[in-house]
């Protein structure tokens, strides 16, 4: 009890918890769950974008997309490392992902059907992600906070490259504009779902806020994202697919329809359009890479033996 009291006082003073510090088991578990889910999202998120590398319309677009996807892979690795400091191994995390015990962001279970989807992902999905990540820079677990700082610094080009694609298409031919609108129609709601259930439906939020793992609530972050994104859509001349969207002069915020939570729950439970495809692909690639890890381990072991013999 005394330890828990000191722990809370330390957190309330905005100090960071480091891996070897005492922490409640629940704090450790909460961080492992959240950070590994975040890492898996970065890695699985490479798939919908990877779908367009070979079909990027120009060499410039292809190089940018490759660099962005490489960043996402890197962000996954920063986060796996941060979670590992809490005592879980990377293999365990991957096994949990494959067993369906660990989740990743439901947004990556939607398909990328046309090139404008790559624009919409950068603009909306990365825009939503960075809204959350900017807030998480102040999370109470040191390694997670440091990973977020690094990620936010690198993430700044992702959203801009997405908006640039949208801008080109929205100001292009009528067909291109139609593709841009179609992509916005399909990605708007899944992007809003990325922030998770409403605050009064989110059981884990209370402890997460108390321990300052989360620094802003789901609804707060979602509202922040909506408020900054609506004017960006207006500039593009595109329409947000929500007939109830309106500016509330009194609150200074946009009002929207409610999210289709049935769809959200279905996708979380594995019934989204691409859940199976994403997971099958990850398992396949991981299995295909096993020989590389085995060969590297064998080579390192042999070199070690030779060192001992000499």
């Amino acid at each position: 009890m005394e330890k828990l009291h000191d722990f809370q006082r330390f957190i309330d003073a905005e100090e960071k918890i480091e891996p070897k510090d005492w922490m409640p088991d629940e704090y450790r578990a909460h961080n492992i769950r959240q950070i590994s889910q975040h890492a898996h999202s970065e890695v699985i998120g490479m798939q919908p974008e990877g779908n367009w590398i070979t079909r990027a319309p120009t060499l410039r677009a292809k190089k940018i997309l490759l660099a962005k996807i490489q960043d996402e892979g890197g962000h996954g690795l920063y986060l796996y490392s941060a979670a590992e400091t809490l005592g879980i191994s990377r293999d365990e995390m991957i096994a949990q992902l494959h067993a369906g015990k660990a989740k990743y962001s439901s947004v990556f279970n939607y398909p990328t059907l046309n090139w404008a989807d790559i624009g919409a992902i950068g603009w909306l999905v990365d825009g939503a992600a960075v809204t959350n990540q900017l807030s998480l820079r102040r999370t109470s677990f040191g390694p997670y906070s440091r990973a977020m700082l690094r990620i936010c610094n690198e993430e700044s080009f992702h959203q801009r490259q997405g908006y640039e694609i949208m801008l080109k298409m929205a100001k292009g031919t009528p067909e291109q504009k139609e593709m841009a609108q179609d992509a916005l129609n399909r990605w708007w709601w899944p992007s809003l779902m990325m922030f998770g259930p409403h605050d009064n439906q989110s059981a884990r939020s209370t402890k997460g806020m108390l321990w300052k793992i989360k620094r802003a609530s789901n609804d707060e972050l979602r509202q922040r994202f909506i408020d900054k994104t609506v004017p960006q859509a207006e500039f593009l001349g595109l329409t947000i697919p929500d007939p109830k969207l309106r500016w509330n002069e009194a609150t200074g915020h946009y009002e929207t329809s409610d999210i289709n939570w049935e769809e959200f729950n279905q996708v979380i439970q594995g019934n989204g359009p691409c859940n199976k495809e994403r997971m099958d692909h990850h398992k396949q690639v991981h299995a295909e890479g096993a020989w590389v890890r085995e060969a590297a381990a064998a080579y390192a072991a042999r070199k070690q033996e030779q060192l001992v013999e000499v």
Binding site: P19, E84, G87, S89, R90, D91, A290, A297
Partner: peptide
């Protein structure tokens, strides 16, 4: 951190 020695991705640096 040391527990990762059995990890198939090699030890942590």
């Amino acid at each position: 951190m040391a527990s990762n020695h059995t990890d198939s991705q090699g030890p942590v640096w």
